[in-house]
Design a protein around this nucleic acid. Sequence first.
DNA 1: TAAAGATAAGAAACCGGTTACTCAGATCAT
DNA 2: ATGATCTGAGTAACCGGTTTCTTATCTTTA
Lengths: 345, 345
Amino acid sequence: MEKRKYSIAEIAQICGVSKATVSRVINNSPSGVGEKTRERVLQTIEKMNYRPNALARSVATSRSGMVGLILPDVSNFFYPKIIRGVTDYMDTKGYSVIVANSDYNPEQEAKQLLNMIDKRVDGIILCSGVSNREFLTQFRNYHVPLGLVGRTFDSSLSDTGIGGDNVLGGYKSASYLLRGGNRRVVYVEGNPGTSGSRQRMEGYCKAHREFGLPVREELTLHGDYSVEYGREAVDFLLDRGIAFDAIMTGSDLIAIGIVSQLQARGIQVPEEVEVIGFDNIELTTVFNPHLSTVSKPHYDMAQHVARQLLRVIEGKPVPLAHTVVQPRLVLRETTKKRDYDREYL
Amino acid sequence: MEKRKYSIAEIAQICGVSKATVSRVINNSPSGVGEKTRERVLQTIEKMNYRPNALARSVATSRSGMVGLILPDVSNFFYPKIIRGVTDYMDTKGYSVIVANSDYNPEQEAKQLLNMIDKRVDGIILCSGVSNREFLTQFRNYHVPLGLVGRTFDSSLSDTGIGGDNVLGGYKSASYLLRGGNRRVVYVEGNPGTSGSRQRMEGYCKAHREFGLPVREELTLHGDYSVEYGREAVDFLLDRGIAFDAIMTGSDLIAIGIVSQLQARGIQVPEEVEVIGFDNIELTTVFNPHLSTVSKPHYDMAQHVARQLLRVIEGKPVPLAHTVVQPRLVLRETTKKRDYDREYL
DNA sequence: TAAAGATAAGAAACCGGTTACTCAGATCAT
DNA sequence: ATGATCTGAGTAACCGGTTTCTTATCTTTA
């Protein structure tokens, strides 16, 4: 029917009114347009398939109606729920979401952040960021509302944030295993450099301190957050003849890799080696045996930070801007059953 | 340090040059700026932390550097790889990706499409779209480059597209099961209304025709693409006393739900019932038993359509704009081992 | 040394919107 | 009937960029 996109000026001309009037109709401003004029303009808009250019509007109003979401790796099964939480909320509020991967790489993360600044997003949600304090501090100079999820930092670095207490998570995991009598508890982490990874380590150390046990260097492994790395970690330990009784991990994916490789190499889980995952993604109950893990409500956390971020953007007060959620230990089939299990709920 | 975002005019004023000159520096246009001026401007930009407003540039150039990606449900484990494929490619070309969910809902899909039009994305990738022909035809009036992935349609509806041959996929799956001697092959689909779902059904029917068997209404089930629905489907069949020998599905998630529920209800897989998934997501080899499934290279397909879409956007020729990839049957542990298995590679 | 050509940089129009300000005509109270 | 108030609608400036056109200055060449 028509051949290109119309502009507000053309629509105005077609119905013989001014741009201002068309603009008023589009934004249905309460005043300023008579009933018949409004009707006429609406009809023209309809007939011409006119769609106002949101970009132009953005530069005029300096609000883009877009937010950025940066996460390490979309295809890691942990993140889709986060995306969903954010997009679901943003959708209800009419915001679009630009998604980008950082690949656990500070330079990449920085690049994506800048890119979003350039696109003038109204705010950014950064998930398990790997940037260091200095960079984030400097980044604040751009004055873009920033929400952090999964990484807890002192409040000056972001406007709002929610994260699990990773220290506690690591502590619960390690101390449960130690209390069960395991003396050689391995800690298999994902990508190094994330704050979550360091914090879990802290909890792991704390537990060992309480049990009066030393933290042995060779029982701490770092790789990435994949099933594949879980498998490799097992091979690494076994092939080097490093003895161990239990494994605590930085993610469920790693744990799944570990369990499946232990089984493949003839080691019984949990009888010979107990394993605890981290995150409680949906997979944990699909995989056999069901994974014991440390749980946080990701979807809800994502929605929460989305909501908070919009409050920041809209200049509303943001109660409890920085929140830490207590992770729960979920004991299923990769740990032994014990009478005190219910204490850990 | 500074208090707000600078505009090109302010930068120009600060170094005592015109907007035009600053603009030339920013876009490092080959001509028109002397060495010392360029240097001075660059320093000011650096010092002021100036970042050009991509939105304003977009309205001036009418190219936004953004593309839209619409998929049914980000949190379905099938889609993250698709997102990754698209974002990875777009990243290398400097495009941002706006992601939105359609929830298998035509209205929602239409809403997201329009939203992206408003945001003036340079192109849209629509994944397993549920819109009907009429809507898509009408949509073409907006003249936004459109790439389809996972849905094959006649070429007038999109500029480029890639999809698995779902008819063939359904056919391979069903005929393998029938050839193995199974007479009551159930077909458990995900959300109805998707083209993929209809096409697999077509393949399923074709196989039955070839084997001279009737397609029985009660052996076709529809729900959604979740593990949970797989479980429900098994309960449904068992509780109604509907006998069956094998199950072909619309997704691996469904298949996983089916297998795990069959086992839970004491039915051996594959000895008593064989199951074939669809898609070959990573999970298939993490889950025990490893899932037999129909495989397509999702990540590559996503990258491919991203590449093609950019060619359309940039006005370059697009060879093989519409591609159909042949799915492979991957036989693992939820089907019985047979001597002719290798024929199906 | 003067004419021709190249180059650096500015002025101004433009992209597609929003919005403060203005004003003519209608409505109202007196 | 008259002045005050309201209201519909237009004008023009603005948002932050790009780009065409023009001009002043500097080289080059004859």
